[in-house]
Write a protein that binds this DNA or RNA. Structure first.
Lengths: 224, 224
DNA sequence: TTATTAATTTAGACAAATCTAAAAATAGAA
DNA sequence: TTCTATTTTTAGATTTGTCTAAATTAATAA
């Protein structure tokens, strides 16, 4: 119907993420915070998005994304994550470097381009941070909701993703070799502060609860 | 100094091309034509570009691009042509399909991205249409100015590029297998209309002057 | 050289996206 | 329930890039 502008795409992406990962209702101020703008700007944009039927919006009542809006958001998320795979796997950027570039590349409009990029990359199912990549119809594998902080001493896990995507956190994890696919064994959990002693390949080190809460895992299922 | 917007980049690119490939002076209306906009819009933009010292501009006197402006333009041309190489060589698009996508990709800002893309592609010197790719400092190999229409009967040439970049023309050439790098022998030139009978691999066919004028060549220099 | 035509610039307006400051509506506490 | 604090919306401006129509300058032809 309408062709969204890059700004509209960014709002829809933010609203989609808030709808799914956030706990609270999607209101004007939460959108303003995540878009780093003012509540007044958000109100203006909500009216536009509503006119175009990408969201349902009533004054003072918050926002709900429509099927149409969700389709737009998933399309952008697909592009973003495919470009992230390209940047890390092909151009050999580190996982903490790619987010900003992908934010620009995701707005390049050609559908055929993204179809061929997907094929060239081998139809990846997850991006470098372990987030699932939607297919052309918007379907994707669901993320493991398990965090390392909920793991048990003596157990072995595979790192599948992160919940904090900040550069700072990702750089921190790479210092320990904590990357998607890596095996993590919990040697001990400290009663006092819930920090844990973990083993990654041959290294042993402590992780604070702050860190383990932001690491997604699944149960380890054998080496081959 | 200033960071050009995508629109400013497009104007500078157009002015650069008009300055180099065009015959006439770069005036308001020629820019308006090439940007597909109105003279009034061009005048507005010329003032802005002049304020930022990317061009020298005096009312009613036409435009001259500055060194600074040239640097911006060459940066964009470099990005455009490298993305075109990526799209044809890696994603296997045809040469007539890539221009529009490259127009979007060229405005993605990261210098590091383009540096790595260049490396990944093997530091190509020419894009799929035979146009030279500037290096990081703006230097590039000069285009062969020789067109096939100036060739001689009985001689052998290598196709190096085109002067008409339209989809229609490029599609037309591909039908004959006329692509950069291909060897073209002129069998005969017709006195009447200057059309020529040429041989490309095992095929022989006629080319009108209209077509041969838009094909760039250099002398053939042996098979190995 | 003067008159007419063509090119260019100015004036004023518009759309998108943003902002600050003020007004209105809702939510929470007493 | 009524008052206060918070959230949200409105009002009015700003910036970027665009437009049409009118005015101005330059070019050209008689």
């Amino acid at each position: 119907m309408y062709q969204p502008t890059a700004t509209e795409e960014n709002y829809l992406k933010a609203i989609y993420h808030l709808s799914n990962t956030g706990i609270k209702s999607v209101n004007t101020s939460s959108i303003a915070t995540s878009m780093e703008t003012t509540a007044a700007s958000v109100t203006d944009m909500l009216r536009k998005l509503s006119d175009k039927e990408w969201i349902n919006y009533e004054k003072y009542k918050g926002v709900k994304i429509t099927r149409k809006g969700e389709k737009v958001a998933l399309g952008i998320i697909r592009k973003h994550r495919l470009w992230e795979v390209f940047l890390t796997n092909i151009l050999e950027f580190e996982w903490e470097e790619v987010h900003h570039m992908a934010e620009e590349l995701e707005h390049v409009s050609s559908e055929e381009l993204i179809k061929r990029l997907d094929k060239f990359l081998g139809h990846p199912k997850f991006d470098p941070h372990g987030d699932p990549i939607p297919d052309q119809t918007g379907k994707m594998e669901s993320h493991d909701k398990f965090t390392l902080s909920a793991g048990e001493a003596g157990e072995k896990y595979t790192l599948t993703g992160v919940t904090d995507h900040s550069t700072l956190f990702l750089k921190h994890l790479r210092k320990y070799g904590l990357l998607p696919g890596v095996t993590v064994s919990i040697a001990e959990i400290m009663d006092y502060d819930k920090s844990m002693l973990v083993k990654v390949s041959k290294d042993k080190f402590h992780l604070s609860l702050e860190v383990s809460k932001n690491i997604l895992i699944k149960k380890y299922v054998g080496s081959k």
